[in-house]
Every structure is written in structure tokens, then in C-alpha cells.
Amino acid sequence: MAEITAALVKELREKTGAGMMDCKKALNETGGDIEQAVDWLRKKGLAAAAKKSGRVAAEGLVGVASGPRIAAMVEVNAETDFVARNESFQAFVESVAQIALQIGDDIEAIKTAMLPTGRSVADEITHLIATIGENMSLRRARVLTVPSGVVATYVHGALRPGLGKIGVLAALEAPSESDALEMLGRQVGMHVAATSPSALDVDAVDPAALERERAVLMEQARASGKPEAIIEKMVDGRVRKYYEEVVLLEQVWVHDGESRVKAVVQKAGGKLVAFDRFKLGEGIEKESSDFAAEVAAASGVKKDPDPDLEPA
């Protein structure tokens, strides 16, 4: 029997895309014969994961977990919304959120963390790909903490507590934790989910984005033909309006339609110091396809043109 070395396990993993623990087990089962181990993994359905790794995964779940003065949020992607309703997948996302809560939001560190299954997070993803049949990935994680106060969580469209399509963390500093502060944090989370601000305060606005906006506003104002001094005032006014759209603390509080977020938070005796918002699949380029054309191509049949699009 050949010695089961780390190099042998690595070679099998590269050949099959299966998880490290599964590769080690396959080599033990086959006496270290790598070709037999490949077949063993294929029979178990564990080598199929590699074939799925190139497919777009833009569905899945956002999961949150929280503790005293800390909260974590993760996004785990799959190919279809159907997988988000799979109990094994949901339990996995919950476990990953708890791991992030314990060790932080470094993705590589999370991937190497061990689960109760005896597999690492990375290997568990490979295992789920093989058993559920879709490509999956741990895309991102975020952890927020405060020295005193609360880090509230909010999940929009929750399939079950802490799991949904949009997640928000809101960090509020205050002299002490309270139910009222927790409720305010949740309301901030609901506000952020609805308005999607890009910055906490004016100072945090991306300078490049602000410069682009100012350039556009300047051109629009100059088209009015007014004197340059008037144009400057017009642009300053429109920049303030821009801040009200993209800066969380400057936005109108969605819960009453008139107060500013900063005024609501100050009145409650807290200080909003950080937030983050994960929307499932945002920024992932999804494949669009003509299903009828795909079927026709697979069958070798030429798809008939749409008569409404034919030239007269």
C-alpha cells in the first residue's frame, strides 16, 4: 500500500476538484492508487464538483449572526433560487455566519475553519456542490464591532431567521446596550435595505464619484446660460441634494418621511459609526440566454426567425 502523503492528496484534489478530506478517504479506500481513487470519487459523485466550478452562481443566501457588541454577515452563492430553500444549504450558511462572528471576516481564514461535519468550510462547499449539484461559493463576509452599544442586524425577505436576500449590519455606539437601541439599529437596517446608501457621512463619499457628479451638474447648470457665480451656487445646491441621496446620515428617515437619519440617531443618544449592506448577487454578471435557441442548437435544428423582426 502506497503511503498517503500530502502531495498525493493534493494531486488527487487537483485532478477531481473534490474536497481534501474526501480525497484522503478515497486514497485510503484504494490503497493509495490515484486512478482508482479518481474512480472512487466519481462513483460517490464527489468528483463532479470540478465540472461545475465555472458556472455562474448569483443566487443563494445572505446570512447574519450576532452577539454582544458584534455582528457578522456573509454571502454564499449558488446557481438557482431553488438551492436557497434547501435545508442543508441554509444550515451551512448559518454555520459560516457563526464562524465569521467568531474569527472575523477574512475569507481565506473562514474557508479553513472546521465545521462539526469534520470538513473545513472550503471542503464543505465542495461536498455540497457534489451532493446538491450546483456550483457554490463563499463570496464575502463582514464583521462590525463597537466598544459599547449594539451592532444590529436586519434581513429583508427572510426565509428563516437570519437568512434572506438582503442583509444589513448597523453599528451604533452608546454608553450602554438597551432594547431601545437595538430597535433603533433594526430600523436603521430597514432604512439601509430600502435606500442603499453608499457612504455613512459626507466625508466618506468617494472623491472620484463626487467629482464625476459635480462635473455633470456643472455642465447641466451651464446649459442654463446663467452667470458663473450663479452656476456655482446652483451646483452647490445640487451637490447637497446628491448627499441626501447617497449619504446615510443625510438621508430622510424612511420611517417618518421628514426627519434626517442623523437627527433620529442623535435624539436616541447614540452614534451611528458604521454600516454595511449585502444584496444577494449584486455585481455578479449573470448569463442571459435564449432558451429556445439553446434547445435548437443542441438538436441541430435552425431556429426560425421572428417574423415580426423580418425586414419588409
Rank of each mutant, 00 (worst) to 15 (best):
176 S>E: 15
130 A>N: 01
184 L>H: 02
65 A>Y: 05
214 R>W: 11
47 A>F: 03
260 R>G: 01
305 P>G: 11
241 K>Y: 11
166 I>H: 05
233 K>A: 11
257 G>D: 10
226 K>M: 11
166 I>R: 00
109 A>P: 04
115 L>S: 02
272 L>P: 01
224 S>I: 03
294 E>M: 10
143 V>I: 08
129 I>Y: 08
219 E>C: 06
102 Q>H: 14
242 Y>D: 05
62 V>F: 10
204 A>H: 05
20 M>I: 14
121 V>E: 05
292 A>L: 13
229 A>K: 14
25 K>E: 14
191 H>N: 01
194 A>P: 04
47 A>W: 01
44 K>V: 04
103 I>H: 04
281 G>H: 04
107 I>L: 15
174 A>F: 07
149 G>H: 02
134 E>W: 07
199 A>G: 04
110 I>K: 06
108 E>M: 01
298 A>E: 15
312 A>Q: 12
49 A>Y: 04
211 E>K: 11
43 K>W: 11
208 A>G: 03
37 A>I: 02
157 G>A: 14
2 A>T: 10
36 Q>A: 11
196 S>P: 06
241 K>W: 10
148 S>M: 12
296 A>P: 02
181 L>P: 02
279 K>L: 10
52 K>W: 12
236 D>T: 00
246 V>R: 08
47 A>C: 14
298 A>G: 05
57 A>R: 05
77 N>V: 00
46 L>W: 09
10 K>T: 08
53 S>K: 15
171 A>P: 05
117 T>Y: 12
87 E>Y: 09
34 I>H: 09
155 V>Y: 07
32 G>R: 08
50 A>D: 13
98 Q>C: 13
5 T>E: 11
158 A>I: 09
13 R>H: 03
290 D>V: 06
63 G>Y: 01
118 G>H: 02
176 S>H: 13
25 K>L: 12
13 R>E: 04
66 S>R: 12
165 K>C: 01
36 Q>P: 01
57 A>H: 01
57 A>N: 02
217 L>T: 02
114 M>C: 08
220 Q>M: 10
68 P>I: 09
12 L>G: 00
76 V>M: 13
208 A>F: 09
107 I>Y: 09
75 E>N: 10
195 T>M: 15
43 K>I: 07
102 Q>Y: 07
123 D>V: 02
19 G>R: 01
134 E>R: 02
165 K>D: 09
186 R>I: 08
131 T>F: 12
165 K>R: 15
256 D>E: 03
36 Q>V: 03
54 G>A: 10
179 D>N: 14
308 D>L: 13
214 R>T: 11
78 A>Q: 00
309 L>F: 10
108 E>Q: 15
299 S>I: 11
98 Q>P: 06
180 A>N: 13
20 M>P: 05
69 R>H: 14
302 K>F: 10
249 L>A: 04
248 L>Y: 00
86 N>H: 12
118 G>W: 14
214 R>H: 06
245 E>A: 11
11 E>G: 06
220 Q>D: 11
203 D>A: 15
